[in-house]
């Protein structure tokens, strides 16, 4: 209980720091939303009035505090360029990005675990060596390039993909079809990395003394792998997957562009261009929240797996 509270405290503190740094960054980088909004009708008086209206005039900390209070109560402010509430703007897109990230993650876990185990069972054999080479190649190709390749192959050549993005409310099946290839493009290099990671940790675990003990009790190599080594190899892989979650979030911004998915990534890029900082701020904090959540979940899973990580467990 105490540990959970401590975790929650650290979590909240990190969120505050992340949001404050983003907030600060927007004070420092060049680009003035007021100039952008007024465009050709810019006069110093109008700019001044608009600043007053947007609440850009107060001291830095006061403005940050106002924003933070608003964010916690759900009022994330108003977009400068769209003149819409940020919550509405973000709300429309957040589902798509989350769905894309979640599907990517599912693909990574569902494919890399069996492939990793397969390479370990066939360690040193032809299949293992082939997969290692394929892995190296896949790891080297960035998702945006795979994305371009996929769009060309599956929508231009094979026309398997619908020409435009289908919303979930229109056609749930079509929606997931639209997300599948972007997710695969995102997942491929991560799958290769996870397989490599799982393979090396498993091989390392298989050389440990407790595996020899397990064999000496009559386990075959399969049972030694599944009953003993696998569980011991998982915690670093779980941590790695949580870090991967953060990388997916970052790469999905680019991949959304390539596949024209109306997600947070596109909104984020557009908002940075127009110095629409309430939108940027909200998105950055949401993404940070998502990444932090992945890390926390990974920690909890690892504590379930390894009793030494539980409170009072390690001596």
């Amino acid at each position: 209980m105490k540990q959970a509270l401590k975790k929650l405290g650290a979590f909240l503190l990190t969120m505050v720091i992340v949001s404050f740094v983003t907030f600060l960054a927007f004070q420092l980088i060049p680009g003035d939303p007021v100039t952008h909004m007024l465009g050709t009708s810019y006069t110093p008086e109008r700019a001044d009035a608009l600043r007053e209206q947007l609440g850009l005039k107060g001291p830095l900390l006061v403005r940050y505090w106002d924003w933070l209070r608003g964010f916690v109560t759900g009022a994330m402010g108003t977009s400068y360029s769209y003149n819409l509430p940020v919550s509405q703007l973000v709300g429309e897109k957040v589902g798509n990005t989350l769905a894309l990230n979640a599907l990517t993650f599912v693909l990574i876990v569902a494919l890399s675990l069996p492939i990793g185990l397969f390479t370990v069972r066939r360690h040193g054999g032809a299949a293992d060596r082939c997969l290692t080479v394929v892995n190296q190649v896949i790891m080297a190709v960035p998702p945006f390039f795979t994305g371009i390749l996929f769009t060309w192959l599956f929508s231009v050549v094979l026309s398997w993909l619908p020409g435009k993005f289908i919303e979930f409310s229109e056609d749930p099946v079509g929606y997931w079809q639209c997300l599948f290839f972007p997710a695969l493009a995102l997942a491929l290099p991560r799958i290769a990395m996870t397989v490599r990671m799982l393979r090396s940790t498993l091989l390392e675990e298989l050389h440990r003394d407790y595996v020899r003990t397990a064999i000496s009790r009559g386990n075959d190599s399969r049972a030694a792998l599944y009953r003993h080594a696998l569980k011991n190899a998982l915690p670093p892989v779980v941590t790695f997957l949580a870090q991967t979650m953060a990388e997916i979030v970052a790469s999905s911004i680019v991949v959304e562009q390539v596949f024209s998915i109306p997600g947070l990534g596109r909104l984020l890029l557009a908002s940075i261009n127009s110095s629409d900082w309430p939108v940027v701020q909200a998105i950055v904090v949401l993404l940070a929240l998502w990444v932090m959540l992945a890390g926390t979940v990974a920690d909890l899973i690892n504590q379930r797996i390894d009793p030494r990580l539980r409170l009072g467990g390690a001596k």
């Binding site: 440990r208 003394d209 020899r212 000496s216 009790r217 009559g218 003993h228 569980k231 390894d306 009793p307």
Partner: peptide, 20 residues
Amino acid sequence: RGKRIGVVFQEPQTCMDPLM
């Protein structure tokens, strides 16, 4: 193994599966 022949190794800390 484990039935007719039992084995005890040197370091019990590393010879036990830490997660079982």
